[in-house]
Design a protein around this nucleic acid. Sequence first.
DNA 1: CGCGGGTTTGATGATGCTCAAGCCCGGTGG
DNA 2: CCACCGGGCTTGAGCATCATCAAACCCGCG
Lengths: 193, 193
Amino acid sequence: MYEPLINFIKNHSKTPLTDNDLEIIKDVFIPKKIRKKQYFLQEGDVCKYSGFILKGAMRQYTVDDKETEHIMRLSIENWWVNDRESFGNGTPSIYNIDAWEDTDLLVVSREDIVKLESITALNEMGRQLDFNHAYTLQRRLNASISKLAEQRYKEFSKLYPEFLQRFPQHIIASYLGMTKETLSRLRRNSLRK
Amino acid sequence: MYEPLINFIKNHSKTPLTDNDLEIIKDVFIPKKIRKKQYFLQEGDVCKYSGFILKGAMRQYTVDDKETEHIMRLSIENWWVNDRESFGNGTPSIYNIDAWEDTDLLVVSREDIVKLESITALNEMGRQLDFNHAYTLQRRLNASISKLAEQRYKEFSKLYPEFLQRFPQHIIASYLGMTKETLSRLRRNSLRK
DNA sequence: CGCGGGTTTGATGATGCTCAAGCCCGGTGG
DNA sequence: CCACCGGGCTTGAGCATCATCAAACCCGCG
């Protein structure tokens, strides 16, 4: 059950994991199940857990004054879920995170995170993830500012084909910063060509 | 001359700097002047330097097929300039960075960065900066996806009043993902109220 | 004085949003 | 087995927001 997590850590750090590290990890990461539509984190709460997805799919989003959801992040197997900022600083989150499918996680709590500080590989992985995250956001922001809806969709399809399978179109549309209608029309037009 | 940099590091880490650390820093960070309009980094090149601004103002941007510039980041005194991704990985950058005003920097080269690895405070600072960066991008992306031009401008003015002084409106407009005309009209309308 | 860079204004049009309706499909319960 | 329902997808009409293009203006500076 811990295999996927262990592998992920190995793939995202140079430093190998000692047996002792493994002990700690298995001790600190706890299995957790979340049913479809259940919240992992609600706006206004502090993000108490950071989770690694073993199976399932989740989404992170804000809700505006018109009750419209804006998807900030989608996660499936072998991805992490949390609000880095809230989890890191203990401040209330502005995001909601919920399960789009029934999901199995391995989670660490904020309190237990100190127990992991001695593990070099995990620190490296953390840096790597922050780095990737910033990079992804930068690309997305750039696309959002400088590209048309159709180009954004094309880039997305190339980059994350798995997501197209897992999430319905209205979710993808929101992730891309457009309405489901626009996405629908745009796909029809692409097909015609 | 190294004061601002030293202070910045102190303010962004818990670990104090030893005398030896200071030695290394003064050895590795080199003063550099960049004249207005000169490039610090050009699209396609590897970002060889990471710089800390002592005085001046710089901008980071992409240029699209219509020759339009899209500002990704603005920096003034006590900010860093670099393309984190290119500098970190040695890959060609997709960004341009140039000086908007005559600028004084302290720069580290990619080769010299290893000499800083032993300095705990700098590592902490690095994490902190990546973290802040990701957080800023997330807020910006969220705004870009879910808010109207006027709200984006208002948030920006509150968050970065210094920038309004330092950069002309067409730069701010580009940073906010709108045209200078839109920004101009929007300001007129806000005043009327 | 003329020039360059920045800002403003107006007219027009593209892009994408809103709202409303209909369709499709799989699941549920009578 | 069928009726119904909910969720998702599509389509159309009208509209808001914002971009584009072109012109004029403003002002500091050589």
